[in-house]
Write a protein that binds this DNA or RNA. Structure first.
Lengths: 338, 338
DNA sequence: ATGAAAGCGCTAACAG
DNA sequence: CTGTTAGCGCTTTCAT
């Protein structure tokens, strides 16, 4: 490989053709091997050698312009902090896409929504877009459709009309956590509702928890609490003053479960004997602390493979049903804390 | 906005021009407002109205093809799990880029490296690429340069020759942790070296820790340990049998710090009195557990703004020095655990 | 098995 | 201020 000339323009397929002593179409045939392409082994070798020599990389923009479709699947970075779940999902999805020669691109803007966001996404002319449902509006979907995006896929709490949606109902998580605790014999429980960036999420989980408790005729206390240790400590102190404090708490998420366990211990209560604790999200540290943390989790894998399935359907030309919705169910990962 | 025709092709600037009753160049002028463009307010309005009506989004591929440069800054998703740090960095960087009308795209493939990776990245014809230094090879950098990528920026442990690099030296982290503990009066210490996906990282931290201990004439025990609770527990049990066990431990990362604190407690030792614990990465939960976790952290913000500065330099045409390296220094976030 | 040529949607230089 | 036009790099007929 020779040195780059500073002002040099990127090599084109024409350059490759010239160096290899063939025509541009031959280069294209070698690089894309379409159904009816027949290139002699020797020619192919010459072309590939030229490619290497020139450090040639075909221009995706030009390709996309010419062919009218791209190999990009666009995933706008979620607003809600996903932590490790994100990397897990991305890994799986990328792998599935790679088998179809597709590229996952995560768009860094986590805030734009509606038509503005759609225009930004549409500009890239992606093959598919997987967006949180609350960032899609009718107008936005319209813009994407118009721009030739072949598959639009939503995910999140609410389904989006006309767009296949993977529904993560956080009420289910709350309900499941409470039912799990009831199954373990608890009758007086508390549900933490954390403030902060995850408040919306937490509130949904509370709703589900509440209805599960009502259904079973159990007592469930709602405890709003800030994202600081002192608040959590105050809550535990409050319980210690009660004559009949709850025997179990659904912490709303794993961070809070960690906090509440810390606080309980500081106050001399043990987990799960004096108080059972259940978190949510099943973050990696659930397995690392002691007592290990029982947690309600969504099947991230379900979403990863579900999304990949959709893209596969799209690629193989199978009909792609716009009305399909998929509900992603939570499950309880039972460990020692509750 | 009217209904999409199913087989319809995406609207083009020509469609907008026709609907607005102007020429294509006028549309382009309105949408890009280049220096010398003069369009009457009324015409501009007509054009924008047509844009809205058609749900038009300009094609980035076509634009990029024509103008020879794009608005894409490409950030290959790091192989090493970054957790929250990633989202923090992305947030900040995206915001800085938005001010320049640039888009951050995160490429989902975390594994490809060298020339193969470079070809994939180069295909998008991005304006800039920010890659982990260990995924860049000379050949890869060459391919990117050839493809007209204006700025190539590396980050990670080692600097990459010829490419400006943000150096995160994990030896520094280890050394800093140990020096902090020495400053607190500890003379016999241990350093956990976790196995698993982060082994490389941990090993570097160990090296730094070791040299800091040697420098100060202190004893530092290297403890290799698996990513499971039992291993950590066994380590603590081992210490309990020693007549002169260490008084402090650098856990290598925050997850391990959490594990070791759990294990210590299970064995009846208290933190930090019987054993001080320092983690690394300053994950959010450091503030949530009790005792709150002292942790060695890198300045993610430094990297975010550093990266943005580089892109700014690039955009404003300031000379862009290919030999610049930036060392990102760790700091100790002191809390109760050690 | 290979080459010639058209055209994807857009911008920018130039002409009016 | 607006319109005409050339061509960016590529794929894909259609001829050879």
């Amino acid at each position: 490989m020779t040195m780059p000339e500073s002002g040099a323009k990127p090599p084109t397929s024409a350059d490759v053709a010239r160096v290899a002593g063939v025509s541009r179409s031959t280069v294209s045939y070698v690089l894309n091997s379409p159904p009816g392409a027949r290139v002699s082994a020797e020619t192919r070798e010459r072309v590939l050698k030229a490619v290497r020599e020139l450090g040639y990389a075909p221009s995706a923009p030009a390709r996309s312009l010419r062919s009218g479709s791209s190999d990009i699947v666009l995933f706008p970075l979620p607003l809600q902090p996903m932590g490790q779940l994100l990397e897990q999902f991305v890994d799986e999805f990328t792998e599935a896409l790679r088998r179809q020669d597709l590229n996952l691109l995560i768009h860094g803007d986590r805030y734009a929504r509606g038509v503005d966001a759609a225009r930004t996404w549409a500009a890239l002319r992606p093959l598919a877009v997987l967006a949180e449902s609350n960032r899609l509006t009718d107008g936005g979907v319209e813009v994407l459709r118009r721009a030739g995006v072949r598959a639009i896929f939503a995910w999140g709490r609410e389904e989006h009309p006309g767009v296949p949606t993977a529904i993560f109902d956080n009420r289910d998580s709350g309900a499941l956590a409470i039912r799990h605790l009831i199954g373990r014999g608890h009758r007086r429980m508390a549900c933490l509702v954390p403030a902060g960036p995850l408040a919306g999420l937490a509130n949904e989980r509370w709703e589900g928890a509440k209805s599960a408790a009502e259904e079973a005729g159990c007592f469930l206390e709602r405890v709003d609490v800030g994202y600081v240790r002192e608040d959590v400590l105050a809550v535990v102190r409050g319980w210690q003053r009660q004559t009949e404090p709850p025997t179990a708490v659904f912490a709303g998420n794993d961070d809070f479960a960690l906090m509440i366990i810390s606080a309980l211990r500081e106050c001399g209560w043990s987990v799960p004997d004096d108080m059972a604790v259940v978190g949510a999200d099943d973050l990696p540290f659930c397995d690392l602390v002691w007592p290990r943390l029982t947690s309600v989790a969504m099947h991230t894998r379900t979403m990863g493979s579900g999304a990949a399935d959709m893209v596969t359907a799209l690629m193989t030309g199978r009909p792609y049903k716009h009305r399909d919705h998929m509900v992603v169910h939570p499950r309880v990962v039972v460990r020692e804390s509750g």
